[in-house]
């Protein structure tokens, strides 16, 4: 539902969710980052976690009343200027198709494009890391060309390997570790996105950018 007002809702007594109005876009996401940076300094907030044009605030302990924090959040949003994060650009070599891209055929069937067109469209943009989530080190990326959008799989795959490059609906992403997924895997990369011994443990952070370089296309 798209309206011009942000929406605030409760996630039980543990957190609240702030959702920005409008279509998903980078300028909005930059305001989300600014809002996150401000809200995480509030004493009642444990963590400010950006999502896709939204922000979850987890409570250090649930406030007795939520209205003051909601009011403060709305005011901070009104005042938030897009925060241009001076991110790094990371290049990821990808092997498209073959055993590492078992669902390429489904993307071809859905889009009506051939594998070379899909690879070219997928590797053309510079993707911005909007947020981290899903599993340790996983990045939500913005900027995929909608010509290769492909619906999530009806039956999720029990486990796809870490490094799997996949398309789910209008989004693309790279799995950081083995696990279940409902997305269509079209290729694979060898990058290690998460190491708990590193500080910070995640390779990428919101505002960083990612380019997929074609290492090989297996037709």
């Amino acid at each position: 539902m798209i309206s011009d007002q942000p929406r605030i809702s409760l996630l039980g007594t543990s957190a609240l969710l702030f959702e920005a109005p409008g279509a998903t876009e980078l300028a909005t996401q930059q305001r989300i980052w600014a809002l996150a940076r401000e809200a995480e300094a509030w004493p009642e907030i444990r963590e400010a976690v950006p999502g896709m044009n939204n922000l979850m605030l987890s409570f250090s302990s649930p406030p007795r009343r939520c209205e003051p924090i909601e009011t403060r959040l709305r005011e901070a949003w009104q005042a938030a200027m897009p925060l241009p994060v001076d991110g790094r650009l990371i290049e990821l070599p990808v092997v498209y198709g073959g055993d590492g891209g078992p669902h390429m055929a489904d993307v071809i069937a859905h889009t009506g494009l051939d594998i070379d067109q899909i690879v070219e469209i997928h590797s053309a943009p510079t993707y911005v890391v909007y947020a981290l989530g899903s599993h340790p080190g996983y990045c939500y990326l913005g900027g995929m060309d909608q010509r290769i959008a492909t619906p999530r799989r009806k039956t999720p795959v029990v486990s796809i390997p870490g490094g799997a490059v996949s398309i789910g609906g209008a989004q693309t992403g790279v799995s950081a570790s083995d696990g279940p997924s409902g997305w269509n895997t079209i290729g694979t990369t060898a990058m290690q996105f998460f190491d708990p011994a590193r500080d910070p443990p995640a390779l990428l952070r919101p505002g960083d950018a990612l380019r997929f370089r074609i290492a090989e296309v297996i037709r």
Partner: peptide, 10 residues
């Protein structure tokens, strides 16, 4: 809905 943070209990 767009991907967003969730907590146990949702």
């Amino acid at each position: 809905t767009r991907s967003h943070g969730i907590v146990p209990g949702v």
